[in-house]
Amino acid sequence: MCNKRLDVKEIMEIIPHRYPFLFVDYIEELEEGKSAVGYKNVTMNEYFFQGHFPGEPVMPGVIMIEALAQVGAVALLSLDEFKGKIAYFGGIRKAKFRRKVTPGDTLKLQVEIINRKGPAGIGKAIASVNGETAVEAELIFAVGV
């Protein structure tokens, strides 16, 4: 396990996402090709709060899933064999949304690659706030060009 913290510039060297679609502020733990733990500091300045929902800001579930996928992509694309490539969604299974995420929350994003065959596989993903699960899912991925 690498306990070196990756800042946002280092994350952008690994995955191609940029504002306004980069949803990971930093990586706290990284085991290349196996797992990663990252964080998203949720603020009222997020563009999606303009319409989701006026007067009741709630982080969209699909954005939480995307944030988890980006953390999983950091774990995968940090492998030498995948450097410079893109990880694509192949599917989402068993997604359960358990808690609202609102401005002021820090979203902990944990992804463990539980099955991989070549450039495809499955990641077990959990996002939580203060130890309370917000969403969990299995993310199916394929690494492409």
Rank of each mutant, 00 (worst) to 15 (best):
C2E: 15
C2P: 10
N3Q: 14
K4V: 11
R5T: 15
L6M: 13
L6P: 00
L6T: 03
D7W: 04
V8A: 12
V8S: 09
K9P: 01
K9D: 14
K9T: 13
E10A: 15
E10P: 00
M12F: 04
E13C: 06
I14G: 00
I14M: 04
I14H: 01
P16M: 07
P16Y: 05
H17L: 06
R18H: 07
Y19G: 05
P20L: 06
L22I: 15
F23K: 05
F23M: 15
I27E: 01
E29H: 11
E29F: 09
L30R: 10
E31A: 10
G33A: 12
K34N: 12
K34G: 07
G38W: 01
G38L: 08
K40P: 04
K40T: 06
T43P: 02
M44G: 13
N45I: 05
E46A: 03
Y47T: 06
Y47D: 13
F49V: 04
F49E: 02
Q50I: 02
Q50E: 14
G51M: 05
H52I: 11
F53G: 05
F53K: 13
P54H: 06
P54I: 06
G55N: 06
E56G: 02
P57L: 04
V58D: 03
P60S: 07
P60V: 11
P60F: 05
P60R: 09
G61P: 00
V62S: 12
E66A: 07
L68Q: 02
L68P: 00
L68Y: 02
V71N: 01
V71Y: 01
A73I: 08
A73E: 11
V74A: 08
V74I: 15
A75C: 09
L77F: 09
L77Q: 02
L79D: 03
D80I: 05
F82M: 10
F82L: 06
F82K: 04
K83Y: 08
G84I: 10
K85M: 11
I86W: 06
A87T: 06
F89I: 08
F89H: 09
F89E: 13
G90E: 08
G90R: 11
G91L: 11
G91A: 10
I92K: 02
I92G: 00
K94F: 07
A95K: 04
F97L: 09
F97V: 10
R98Y: 04
K100H: 10
V101I: 06
V101P: 00
T102G: 03
T102K: 13
T102C: 07
P103T: 09
T106K: 14
L109S: 01
L109P: 00
Q110D: 12
Q110W: 04
E112M: 07
E112H: 10
I114V: 15
N115H: 12
R116A: 13
R116I: 12
G118P: 07
G118K: 13
G118H: 08
P119S: 10
A120C: 14
I122F: 13
I122R: 15
K124G: 07
A127C: 06
A127E: 01
S128D: 14
S128V: 09
E132V: 10
T133M: 04
A134D: 02
V135T: 14
E136S: 14
E136V: 05
A137F: 03
A137V: 09
A137Y: 02
L139P: 01
L139I: 15
L139V: 15
L139T: 11
I140K: 13
F141V: 02
F141G: 00
V143D: 01
G144P: 06
G144I: 10
